[in-house]
Amino acid sequence: MSQETYELKAEARERVGKGSARELRRNGMIPAVIYGDKQAPISIAINTNEVTKRIHAGGFMTTIATINVDGKKYQVLPKDYQLDPVRDFTMHVDFLRVSRDSQVTVAIPVHFENEDKAPGIKSGGVLNIVRHDVEVHCPANAIPEAFTVDLTGKKVGDSIHISDVTLPKNVSPVITDRDFTIATIVAPLVAVEDEATETVEAEGEEKSED
Protein backbone atom coordinates (compact mmCIF):
# COMPACT_ATOMS: atom_id res chain seq x y z
CA MET A 1 0.00 0.00 0.00
CA SER A 2 1.01 3.63 -0.46
CA GLN A 3 1.80 5.87 2.46
CA GLU A 4 -0.88 6.42 5.11
CA THR A 5 -3.83 8.59 4.23
CA TYR A 6 -3.86 12.22 5.29
CA GLU A 7 -6.36 15.06 5.57
CA LEU A 8 -6.39 18.49 3.97
CA LYS A 9 -8.66 21.34 4.99
CA ALA A 10 -10.34 23.26 2.18
CA GLU A 11 -12.86 26.01 1.58
CA ALA A 12 -15.62 25.89 -1.01
CA ARG A 13 -15.25 28.67 -3.56
CA GLU A 14 -18.05 30.19 -5.54
CA ARG A 15 -15.98 32.42 -7.80
CA VAL A 16 -13.95 30.75 -10.54
CA GLY A 17 -11.79 32.07 -13.36
CA LYS A 18 -8.29 33.49 -13.75
CA GLY A 19 -8.91 36.59 -11.65
CA SER A 20 -10.24 34.58 -8.72
CA ALA A 21 -7.37 32.06 -9.02
CA ARG A 22 -4.75 34.83 -8.94
CA GLU A 23 -6.37 36.32 -5.85
CA LEU A 24 -6.33 32.93 -4.12
CA ARG A 25 -2.64 32.42 -4.87
CA ARG A 26 -1.79 35.86 -3.52
CA ASN A 27 -3.49 34.79 -0.28
CA GLY A 28 -1.52 31.55 0.02
CA MET A 29 -4.23 29.29 -1.39
CA ILE A 30 -4.49 27.06 -4.46
CA PRO A 31 -7.62 26.57 -6.59
CA ALA A 32 -8.62 22.91 -6.88
CA VAL A 33 -11.56 20.79 -7.94
CA ILE A 34 -13.11 17.55 -6.69
CA TYR A 35 -14.88 15.56 -9.41
CA GLY A 36 -16.05 12.08 -10.35
CA ASP A 37 -18.22 9.37 -8.79
CA LYS A 38 -21.18 10.60 -10.89
CA GLN A 39 -21.52 13.75 -8.80
CA ALA A 40 -21.22 17.42 -9.66
CA PRO A 41 -17.70 18.85 -9.38
CA ILE A 42 -16.86 21.02 -6.38
CA SER A 43 -14.52 24.00 -6.68
CA ILE A 44 -12.36 24.43 -3.59
CA ALA A 45 -9.35 26.32 -2.28
CA ILE A 46 -6.59 24.60 -0.31
CA ASN A 47 -3.51 25.85 1.51
CA THR A 48 -0.49 26.19 -0.78
CA ASN A 49 2.10 25.10 1.79
CA GLU A 50 0.16 22.01 2.86
CA VAL A 51 -0.29 20.74 -0.69
CA THR A 52 3.30 21.53 -1.70
CA LYS A 53 4.59 19.57 1.31
CA ARG A 54 2.50 16.56 0.29
CA ILE A 55 3.70 16.71 -3.31
CA HIS A 56 7.37 16.84 -2.31
CA ALA A 57 6.95 14.09 0.29
CA GLY A 58 6.44 11.53 -2.49
CA GLY A 59 3.54 9.23 -3.26
CA PHE A 60 1.17 12.15 -3.75
CA MET A 61 -0.52 10.69 -6.84
CA THR A 62 -0.97 7.22 -5.34
CA THR A 63 -2.22 8.06 -1.85
CA ILE A 64 -5.87 8.40 -0.87
CA ALA A 65 -6.56 11.65 0.97
CA THR A 66 -9.46 13.11 2.91
CA ILE A 67 -10.44 16.66 2.04
CA ASN A 68 -12.45 18.48 4.67
CA VAL A 69 -14.54 21.11 2.89
CA ASP A 70 -16.11 23.33 5.52
CA GLY A 71 -16.81 20.30 7.70
CA LYS A 72 -17.87 17.85 4.97
CA LYS A 73 -15.29 15.16 4.20
CA TYR A 74 -14.49 13.62 0.81
CA GLN A 75 -12.24 10.65 0.07
CA VAL A 76 -10.15 11.55 -2.97
CA LEU A 77 -7.17 10.55 -5.07
CA PRO A 78 -5.03 13.31 -6.66
CA LYS A 79 -5.25 12.94 -10.43
CA ASP A 80 -3.29 15.93 -11.71
CA TYR A 81 -1.53 19.08 -10.61
CA GLN A 82 -0.07 22.04 -12.45
CA LEU A 83 3.19 23.79 -11.63
CA ASP A 84 4.20 27.27 -12.67
CA PRO A 85 6.78 26.69 -15.46
CA VAL A 86 9.01 29.51 -14.23
CA ARG A 87 8.70 29.63 -10.45
CA ASP A 88 7.80 25.95 -9.96
CA PHE A 89 5.03 26.51 -7.41
CA THR A 90 1.74 24.59 -7.42
CA MET A 91 -1.01 26.35 -9.35
CA HIS A 92 -3.93 23.90 -9.43
CA VAL A 93 -4.88 20.39 -8.29
CA ASP A 94 -7.53 17.95 -9.54
CA PHE A 95 -8.91 15.40 -7.10
CA LEU A 96 -10.99 12.34 -8.02
CA ARG A 97 -13.71 11.20 -5.61
CA VAL A 98 -13.24 7.58 -4.59
CA SER A 99 -15.15 5.08 -2.50
CA ARG A 100 -14.39 1.67 -1.06
CA ASP A 101 -15.44 0.00 -4.33
CA SER A 102 -13.75 2.47 -6.70
CA GLN A 103 -11.36 1.22 -9.36
CA VAL A 104 -8.69 3.73 -10.32
CA THR A 105 -5.92 4.05 -12.90
CA VAL A 106 -2.58 5.10 -11.43
CA ALA A 107 1.09 5.12 -12.42
CA ILE A 108 3.10 3.03 -9.94
CA PRO A 109 6.86 3.69 -9.65
CA VAL A 110 9.28 0.85 -10.37
CA HIS A 111 12.19 0.21 -7.98
CA PHE A 112 15.19 -2.00 -8.74
CA GLU A 113 17.14 -4.01 -6.19
CA ASN A 114 20.20 -6.28 -6.00
CA GLU A 115 22.18 -4.52 -8.72
CA ASP A 116 25.29 -5.84 -6.93
CA LYS A 117 24.05 -9.37 -7.63
CA ALA A 118 23.59 -8.85 -11.37
CA PRO A 119 26.59 -10.26 -13.30
CA GLY A 120 25.83 -7.96 -16.23
CA ILE A 121 26.11 -4.84 -14.09
CA LYS A 122 29.09 -6.10 -12.08
CA SER A 123 30.98 -6.63 -15.32
CA GLY A 124 30.35 -3.04 -16.40
CA GLY A 125 26.94 -3.30 -18.01
CA VAL A 126 24.38 -0.52 -17.59
CA LEU A 127 20.79 -0.77 -16.36
CA ASN A 128 18.71 0.91 -19.04
CA ILE A 129 15.33 1.82 -17.52
CA VAL A 130 12.64 1.91 -20.19
CA ARG A 131 9.76 2.62 -17.79
CA HIS A 132 10.22 4.39 -14.47
CA ASP A 133 6.57 3.68 -13.65
CA VAL A 134 3.82 1.35 -14.83
CA GLU A 135 0.20 2.44 -15.28
CA VAL A 136 -2.26 -0.02 -13.75
CA HIS A 137 -5.91 -0.53 -12.86
CA CYS A 138 -6.45 -1.31 -9.18
CA PRO A 139 -8.84 -0.81 -6.24
CA ALA A 140 -8.65 2.68 -4.76
CA ASN A 141 -8.12 1.22 -1.28
CA ALA A 142 -5.26 -1.05 -2.39
CA ILE A 143 -2.90 1.07 -4.48
CA PRO A 144 0.62 -0.43 -4.49
CA GLU A 145 3.36 1.86 -3.22
CA ALA A 146 5.84 0.57 -5.83
CA PHE A 147 6.79 -2.44 -7.92
CA THR A 148 10.14 -4.02 -7.09
CA VAL A 149 12.30 -5.71 -9.73
CA ASP A 150 14.98 -8.14 -8.53
CA LEU A 151 18.08 -7.93 -10.74
CA THR A 152 19.77 -10.98 -9.22
CA GLY A 153 21.44 -13.08 -11.93
CA LYS A 154 20.67 -10.65 -14.78
CA LYS A 155 23.31 -10.53 -17.53
CA VAL A 156 24.14 -8.13 -20.35
CA GLY A 157 21.44 -8.52 -22.99
CA ASP A 158 18.74 -9.54 -20.51
CA SER A 159 15.39 -7.72 -20.52
CA ILE A 160 12.86 -7.34 -17.71
CA HIS A 161 9.24 -7.44 -18.89
CA ILE A 162 5.98 -6.79 -17.06
CA SER A 163 5.50 -10.56 -16.85
CA ASP A 164 8.60 -10.67 -14.61
CA VAL A 165 6.89 -8.44 -12.04
CA THR A 166 4.63 -10.03 -9.43
CA LEU A 167 1.51 -7.86 -9.33
CA PRO A 168 -0.72 -7.78 -6.23
CA LYS A 169 -4.21 -9.24 -6.36
CA ASN A 170 -6.70 -7.22 -8.43
CA VAL A 171 -3.92 -5.11 -9.96
CA SER A 172 -3.53 -5.29 -13.75
CA PRO A 173 -1.48 -3.27 -16.25
CA VAL A 174 -3.28 -0.84 -18.53
CA ILE A 175 -1.31 -2.19 -21.49
CA THR A 176 -2.52 -5.74 -22.13
CA ASP A 177 -1.71 -6.41 -25.78
CA ARG A 178 2.00 -7.12 -25.25
CA ASP A 179 4.56 -8.15 -22.65
CA PHE A 180 6.17 -4.72 -22.55
CA THR A 181 9.75 -4.07 -21.48
CA ILE A 182 10.51 -2.29 -18.21
CA ALA A 183 14.32 -2.36 -18.34
CA THR A 184 17.28 -3.95 -20.09
CA ILE A 185 20.91 -4.50 -19.20
CA VAL A 186 23.10 -3.20 -21.99
CA ALA A 187 26.80 -3.34 -22.73
CA PRO A 188 28.95 -0.45 -21.47
CA LEU A 189 28.87 2.59 -23.76
CA VAL A 190 32.67 2.53 -24.07
CA ALA A 191 32.57 -1.04 -25.34
CA VAL A 192 29.91 -0.14 -27.89
CA GLU A 193 31.92 2.88 -29.07
CA ASP A 194 35.11 0.79 -29.34
CA GLU A 195 33.25 -1.80 -31.40
CA ALA A 196 31.90 0.91 -33.71
CA THR A 197 35.38 2.39 -34.11
CA GLU A 198 36.84 -1.00 -34.97
CA THR A 199 34.13 -1.51 -37.58
CA VAL A 200 34.83 1.86 -39.19
CA GLU A 201 38.59 1.21 -39.20
CA ALA A 202 38.08 -2.25 -40.72
CA GLU A 203 35.89 -0.80 -43.46
CA GLY A 204 38.55 1.85 -44.13
CA GLU A 205 41.24 -0.81 -44.49
CA GLU A 206 39.08 -2.76 -46.93
CA LYS A 207 38.61 0.31 -49.10
CA SER A 208 42.36 0.99 -49.06
CA GLU A 209 43.06 -2.53 -50.25
CA ASP A 210 40.60 -2.04 -53.09
Results as ranks from 00 to 15, higher is better:
A107G: 09
D194G: 00
V69K: 07
Q3S: 12
K154Y: 09
K53R: 15
P31R: 11
A12G: 12
D116W: 06
E50A: 15
T199S: 13
D37I: 03
H132Q: 14
A191K: 10
E50I: 02
E23S: 09
S172E: 15
E50H: 08
V93T: 07
D88N: 15
A57F: 10
T63W: 04
T63E: 03
I129P: 06
I160R: 07
S2D: 01
V192A: 09
Y74W: 13
T5I: 06
A187E: 13
G124T: 05
D210L: 13
K169S: 12
S163M: 05
V156E: 13
P41Y: 01
T166H: 08
K155D: 07
E205N: 12
L127V: 08
A118K: 06
P139K: 04
E23H: 04
R13C: 02
K38A: 12
D80Q: 11
P173L: 12
A45R: 11
G36V: 04
M61I: 05
V171H: 08
I44E: 10
P78V: 08
M1A: 15
S20L: 03
Q103W: 04
V200R: 14
D37Q: 12
D80P: 02
A187R: 09
S43D: 09
I42Q: 15
D179P: 08
I121H: 00
T166L: 10
V156G: 02
R100T: 13
I30S: 11
R178S: 14
Q82W: 05
R15V: 08
K207D: 15
V149M: 10
F95C: 06
V165A: 10
T199R: 15
M61V: 09
S172V: 05
D84V: 01
E135H: 01
K155A: 08
E11H: 12
T105E: 14
Q82A: 11
G124V: 07
V33T: 11
I64K: 14
D94A: 10
P119S: 06
I129V: 15
D101F: 05
P78I: 05
I64V: 15
T90I: 10
D177G: 00
G125Y: 03
A146W: 03
D158G: 07
A118Y: 04
L24V: 02
V126K: 12
T197S: 05
A107Y: 02
T66V: 13
D116E: 15
L24Y: 02
L189E: 14
K122A: 08
E115P: 06
T184G: 00
V110W: 07
A40N: 11
V86P: 00
I30H: 02
R26M: 07
V76N: 04
T152H: 10
E23C: 00
E7I: 15
S2V: 04
L151A: 05
H132D: 08
D210G: 11
E206W: 04
K117H: 12
R131Y: 11
D133G: 00
T152I: 10
E198T: 07
A32R: 00
E145M: 11
E23R: 12
A146T: 01
T66N: 13
T181I: 15
N128Q: 14
D84G: 01
H56E: 10
A191F: 00
G120C: 06
K154I: 00
D70R: 08
D94L: 03
E113N: 02
P85I: 05
K117L: 14
K207P: 00
M29T: 08
F112K: 09
R100I: 11
H137P: 01
G36K: 12
I160T: 12
E23A: 09
C138K: 03
